[in-house]
């Protein structure tokens, strides 16, 4: 072995690689519900849709169709079914609107307790385990004058920052959980994705999930948040900035997890969701 090779061998223990992320958890999360091995030709196209490129292409198509789709409920429903998550839509936009809010604001709903929250909702709340009690529980009801809640109500849980869940610049908490009834309130959560963000659709335990990474805008398509201007263009009212977010369908419930975490961490949190 030459001197150079000896020096290279000695360096091996000192090379500073980035820490290996927990890839196994996210791979298994994405594979859950998939059959192993060779796929039938008919399924190959569907599989391709799970790649990032296809999701972004889908988002571009949605952008082109977005205005018309929002105006015609039946068309919008078709788009939603295609996206898969009935409580959410995504649109690719060249830039976020100028009137975007940087912070959460007063849109959480009415403070309550976990025990009482279920009475205001059409669905059974899901809570992550292993994080202790949330430091905030809020419900939004349709008849709540403070809120803009969708049919079936909305649950919001906040968890204090901690190791692994740092304080979010946009929510001020470690983890923000939103839950709505996707059957009763299709398309409640609208996502505006600038070019710097990316989306990836996959399955967790056989249920559809959508991971949005990077700064993007979130709005609600309720009570005039989405309106038409004099040029007959649809405009979006209150849009706030959001960091990384995982949306997942859990039966009828659309769950949204937001925080400054990576996909593996988000998938881990999703796996811990259980009925309250």
């Amino acid at each position: 072995m030459s001197e150079l090779e000896s020096r290279l061998r000695e360096l091996a223990a000192e090379v500073d690689y980035p820490p290996t992320p927990p890839i196994a958890a996210s791979v298994v999360g994405r594979l859950a519900g998939e059959p192993v091995g060779r796929t039938r030709p008919g399924r190959r196209a569907w599989r391709r849709l799970t790649t990032r490129t296809a999701v972004l292409a889908a988002a571009l198509v949605l952008l082109a169709a977005g205005v018309v789709a929002a105006a015609v409920p039946s068309v919008r429903d078709d788009v939603l079914r295609w996206v898969g998550l009935r409580g959410a839509t995504i649109e690719r936009v060249p830039a976020l609107p100028a009137n975007v809010q940087r912070h959460l604001g007063q849109v959480l709903g009415t403070p309550t307790t976990l025990a009482a929250a279920g009475d205001s909702l059409s669905f059974t709340p899901l809570v992550p385990s292993g994080l202790g009690r949330p430091n905030g529980v809020f419900v939004g009801r349709r008849d709540d004058p403070r809120g803009d809640a969708p049919p079936g109500g909305e649950l919001t849980l906040t968890y204090a920052p901690r190791p692994g869940l740092p304080r979010s610049r946009y929510t001020g908490v470690g983890l923000l959980v939103n839950e709505i009834d996707g059957r009763l309130a299709p398309g409640t959560f609208g996502k505006l994705m600038p070019p710097s963000s990316r989306a990836d659709r996959f399955r967790i335990d056989g249920e559809l999930a959508l991971w949005i990474e990077g700064l993007h805008g979130i709005y609600r398509q309720l009570h005039g948040y989405y309106y038409k201007d004099t040029e007959h263009n649809f405009r979006i009212g209150r849009v706030r900035l959001s960091g990384n977010a995982l949306l997942l369908q859990q039966g009828p419930v659309l769950v949204r997890l937001e925080g400054e975490f990576t996909l593996p961490k988000a998938i881990h949190l999703a796996h811990t969701l259980h009925p309250r």
Partner: peptide, 20 residues
């Protein structure tokens, strides 16, 4: 780091789908 993580995840997904 982020592209390497994504590439590695996709590699394991492809490998699983091609296991047969």
């Amino acid at each position: 780091s982020s592209d390497a993580e994504e590439a590695t995840q996709d590699a394991f997904l492809k490998a699983y789908r091609a296991l047969d």
